[in-house]
Design a protein around this nucleic acid. Structure first.
Lengths: 186, 186
DNA sequence: GTCTATAAAGCGATAGAC
DNA sequence: GTCTATCGCTTTATAGAC
């Protein structure tokens, strides 16, 4: 009986969960093998660059997801308030209401940051920019919009940390919804 | 020529920096040895429980520092507004204006959390409680105070993540000072 | 495409000399 | 108290059979 998984694209989401749960250092090939159901031979077949290429693939997928579901709507939609509300719900769903950790944030904290510095910087820079753009269209002056945007992204990231630290996922949704309300009615 | 360091208390802060920079998994004994200038023999002399005991000692020191310099003033000082302002400055200094990462937050994100669950939970719970207590003394009703407190701690934690991710430490101080202003004048 | 076997290096931890 | 040597295990990565 052969393996079911035959495509790189099917493996990447599984890798994402492993890196989220264990961090880059903690995600050993044996853990990855268990989570994907693949042996080392198969893993190196799909990712000749090993663990680093696996993590890079996950980061690329995360980037594409946020571009499509968060950044683009925030930047481009005519109704900025609606885009803000809708992308907030999408983010809450993405992070499983606080039960899922932010891979990029986790990578940023330790030395893993140096390995993927460009992707990590880009992730947060674009998030803040897209949010600031939407707030500007809502009528805030650009400087205030940028400040509010970086505050909101920081708050969301920290809420993920606290939610996981205290074992209280609901904290995440609570904080993020409060932030959204403050952004819409300043 | 003998080693200069002869006390456990002198080693713990060095261990703290290593765990902050590399995370628990990434902080190998060889890295720890280099940072402390001690061989494995000496390290196991001071910490018979190995790496886990080292990290536990660091967490205990962090807890003691926050209790003395943050939680106690927030809970006990008569002038709650002054305590809030003063502990905020202390926190900014503690995190080196955004150049230092929160060890407890970093531990919380990956599987390391399970190893030190009680200490991690306690750290954030007491921080939020102490902050809520001060805000209550400022006249906020208890529920609003608690909500504002958990929001402020989350915001601070996320600001540390963003500051490190973007390589812009100043972001941390900016966000934290803005939060303080919002807490004092709601 | 997937597996097992294997290599080389690094890991946490221990023992024992000094 | 500090060191070096070493153990047993796990790590990433490769090779080669199927």
């Amino acid at each position: 009986m052969a393996r079911q998984i035959a495509e790189r694209a099917e493996i990447v989401p599984l890798l994402g969960e492993v890196f989220r749960e264990h961090g880059y250092e903690g995600a050993s090939l044996s853990v990855i093998g268990k989570a994907t159901g693949l042996g080392k031979g198969s893993l190196y077949h799909f990712f000749p660059g090993g663990k680093e290429e696996m993590a890079a693939a996950v980061l690329a997928e995360v980037d594409a997801w946020f571009e499509a579901h968060i950044y683009a709507p925030l930047r481009d939609e005519t109704d900025a308030a609606a885009a803000l509300a809708r992308t907030t719900e999408a983010v809450i769903a993405y992070f499983r209401s606080g039960r899922r950790v932010c891979l990029v944030g986790a990578f940023a904290l330790d030395q893993t940051r140096d390995r993927f510095a460009a992707a990590i910087r880009r992730y947060f820079a674009r998030w803040v920019e897209a949010l600031a753009e939407a707030l500007t269209r809502l009528g805030r002056d650009p400087a205030a919009a940028r400040a509010a945007a970086e505050g909101a992204v920081a708050s969301l990231q920290g809420a993920l940390v606290l939610a996981r630290a205290t074992g209280e996922p609901a904290l995440f949704e609570r904080v993020v919804r409060r932030d959204l309300a403050a952004l819409l009615a300043p």
